[in-house]
């Protein structure tokens, strides 16, 4: 089971990112849990400097852009 963390204070692009992640999980059939981090303090603690950002199992993979479903699928496989 993978854990996908979506970092974003709640702007439009961050919500979009969460949707993309959920779609990618559904499309790939991988079992994964989505965690949303919206607190600035926590975002900063994770070392994220550009939101939206995505980490897989605690490893930062994408920062500062809304990925495509295909991008996230690649991270899941």
């Amino acid at each position: 089971m993978k854990t996908i963390t979506v970092y974003g204070p709640g702007c439009a692009r961050c919500k979009q990112t969460e949707e993309v992640v959920r779609k990618a999980i559904a499309a790939s059939g991988v079992e994964a849990e989505v965690v949303k981090v919206t607190e600035y303090q926590e975002i900063a603690m994770a070392g994220v400097m550009a939101t939206p950002a995505i980490a897989v199992d605690g490893q930062l993979k994408i920062a500062g852009k809304v990925p495509s479903v295909a991008d996230v699928q690649k991270l899941l496989s």
Partner: peptide
């Protein structure tokens, strides 16, 4: 919306 994490960073 990235201004705060960037500022802290």
């Amino acid at each position: 919306c990235s201004a705060v994490p960037l500022f802290i960073g």
